[in-house]
Structures are given as structure tokens and as C-alpha cells.
């Protein structure tokens, strides 16, 4: 039974992961200069990012058909780990120890908040 649940839990985690990748794609494009404001939005990178968000919504929807919503305090805060890690690795953003501490406190807050639902 756990193996089955684990599969859908993994789908949910992958969904959070790919939407974190999409955020990085948006930032990559935001760092580039564009000829016009319209081209800041109408380009393959931004379109791809929103395509990924779209897929992610359906993956989460599919996973939630089998995984209890009570798992959300564990899965949803993962984006606050994935985004900074991918940001540091791909965008070469530097992150201060104080910001890491702030994010750890936030994740604890999200877990406390969600457990009270």
C-alpha cells in the first residue's frame, strides 16, 4: 500500500520540483534585456515556464486523488528548499546564512500552520 502511495507522493514532489524549475526559467528571462516589454513575456523561456506550471497543476491534482491532503505540510514547503537551491546552482545567486535561517523558520511556520487545519 505504501509503495502505491509513495508513487503518487513522488508525483506530487516532482510537480513541486518542476514548478521550482519554472520559477528559475522566469528569473533567467527576467535577467535578460529585451527589445520591448511584450517580448519580456512572449518568448520561449516564459512560455515554457507557464507550460510547466500548467503541467504541475495537473500532476498535483492527479497525486491528490490518492495522497491525503495532510501530506501538504511536508510537500508544499519543499518549494522553499528547491527554489533557493536551484537558484544558487543555476543562477549563481549567493544566499546569506541569515536568509537560510529565515527560510528554515518560514518552513517551520508553514508546517505549524498546516498542521492546524
Amino acid at each position: 500500500m505504501f509503495a502505491g502511495l509513495g508513487k503518487y507522493l513522488l508525483i506530487w514532489i516532482i510537480s513541486v520540483f518542476i514548478s521550482s524549475i519554472a520559477q528559475v526559467l522566469l528569473k533567467l528571462e527576467a535577467n535578460k534585456p529585451h527589445a520591448s516589454r511584450l517580448k519580456e513575456y512572449l518568448n520561449p523561456c516564459v512560455a515554457g515556464a507557464y507550460g510547466i506550471f500548467f503541467v504541475s497543476v495537473f500532476m498535483t491534482y492527479y497525486a491528490l486523488k490518492y495522497v491525503p491532503l495532510t501530506y501538504s505540510p511536508i510537500v508544499e514547503p519543499l518549494s522553499y528548499i528547491f527554489v533557493p537551491v536551484i537558484g544558487v546552482l543555476l543562477l549563481k545567486e549567493k544566499i546569506s546564512k541569515r536568509r537560510i535561517l529565515g527560510m528554515a523558520i518560514m518552513i517551520a511556520g508553514i508546517v505549524i500552520f498546516s498542521l492546524g487545519k
Partner: peptide
């Protein structure tokens, strides 16, 4: 839990944002 969680989240944001 929601109230406590919100306060902890706010503290986390304040700490993280002031990280420079």
C-alpha cells in the same frame, strides 16, 4: 496553530529579508 504558524512565518520573512 494557524495563528502561531503565521507569527513564525512572519518572523522567518523578517529574518530572511533582512539577510541583506
Amino acid at each position: 496553530n494557524m495563528v502561531i504558524g503565521s507569527i513564525v512565518i512572519l518572523i522567518g520573512i523578517m529574518v530572511g529579508v533582512s539577510g541583506g
